[in-house]
Design a protein around this nucleic acid. Structure first.
Lengths: 247, 247
DNA sequence: CGTTATTTGTGCGTATGTATT
DNA sequence: AAATACATACGCACAAATAAC
């Protein structure tokens, strides 16, 4: 059982409070946040604990700090612009799109896929699905799993031929895994539509596509899934927002 | 003057040392890192300072820690696969490539660029450069600046026509800014080579290119630079590694 | 099964340095 | 020059999770 913390640490509670105040717009327009001593006073915490809270907020990119001047909210961090570029976003990507299974999971031998999954066997499971937006298919995704992973979802109705859902495969998969997924390595390039892609997305063979490969790994470094997507560039642009990390 | 730190803080030095040891493979295969007390002993630092170093490493995803068990290197983070996906990486991207200025900064009216920079005037500064790898140009980048930003680097020898350097424009720019750059919004799509791109990269007009647009913003949310790059897909793949965020 | 040692997590105190106003 | 505010560094005490006995 993953027992949830019943009592939140003081520094986290403070960070949450400050996050809320920032989102509320209280420090918009270059207004300085309270100083460490002020917060220490207000919440009855030591200055060290206040600092610990700020460390998290700085790491998230919610605030930035300047010695001698003070602490300021990062403009546009609280509002509607949601924090992209995290794995969470990748896994929830599908809110406004529908997924349709084109080819259900099937056991097969694929040397290339097995190699990329870093398996010692050549045996992998492969499935493919299309994603729709506004009624038109704009991406064909093929995923490969190691056998152990495939077993976890093979029987799910979500992967049956013709099934539709609004989730991502990796989102469906994760709850069944023993270790959480912590990393997604993506590579993005240009590729031509092959016969299958062309047929499924109704475009000419040889059409230029945006190709995105994703390799999901868990905390132990084991690769959990390989996904290769071909996007119609007319209907899709890949977006990421990178934030300054830590310190 | 932006004075560079002459003496690195102890916790950063320690973090760097540990990063190096991890990269070297010393803690591969589930081997526990030294405990806080051991490191405190080894480096003559307090346990608190050691903890501070670990906070950074955890935030980067280089290690994960388990109470009662110890600290472990995140498998696959150290080796040849370099950690991309932070703004820092974007700004230091160029270690192994050379940049050559093709068209020096010039004041001009550009409605589209001005709009994307969120300016109220139509006046922007534009420059363009190529980047080489192994002697062949593989990307043409055009950047647009607001006037205030352009002033900061106009006179730098690095942006003169024909100049070569191994930096990134945004890396050259940042030390001159009042507020740090904290966000880079990227969008990636497929585009055809126009006459200029084709000429500079020696490819046919109409060739399929990987197009990457980047919009850099500072902590106040002001846009500092717009950069549009056209990559030859034969010589370049865009890679990002996304990590599960924080805590 | 509880006990104990180990290891990380939380919280606070102090002192001193550095950057900004 | 002085006051303010954040940064670094060390110290201590106790809590919580884990593993070994």
């Amino acid at each position: 059982m993953t027992s949830r913390d019943l009592t939140e640490p003081a520094y986290r509670a403070l960070a949450a409070t400050l996050r809320a105040r920032i989102a509320e717009g209280r420090y918009r327009g270059g207004v300085r946040l309270p100083t460490e001593s002020e917060l220490s006073e207000e919440f009855g915490l030591s200055r060290q604990t206040v600092r610990r809270a700020f460390q998290d907020l700085v790491a998230e990119g919610a605030v930035y700090r300047v010695p001698g001047r003070g602490t300021f909210a990062t403009e546009g961090s609280g509002r509607y612009l949601r924090q992209l570029g995290s794995i969470e976003d990748l896994m929830n990507l599908s809110a406004d799109t529908t997924m349709e299974v084109v080819s259900p999971p099937r056991r097969q031998v694929d040397l290339d896929a097995a190699g990329r999954l870093r398996l010692d066997t050549d045996l992998v499971y492969r499935m493919a699905f299309r994603r729709y937006h506004d009624g038109t298919p704009f991406v064909l995704t093929t995923v490969w799993w190691p056998e152990a992973v495939a077993r976890l979802v093979m029987d799910s109705p979500d992967v049956a031929a013709g099934a539709s859902s609004t989730h991502t495969m990796i989102g469906l998969l994760e709850p069944h895994l023993r270790r959480p997924i912590v990393e997604a390595a993506q590579s993005i390039t240009v590729a031509s539509a092959d016969a299958e892609v062309a047929a499924q997305l109704d475009c000419p063979v040889g059409h230029s596509m945006l190709r995105v490969d994703r390799l999901y790994s868990d905390a132990d470094g084991s690769v959990v899934e390989l996904a290769v997507s071909h996007f119609l560039p007319e209907h899709y642009t890949y977006r990421v927002t990178l934030r300054r990390s830590g310190n």
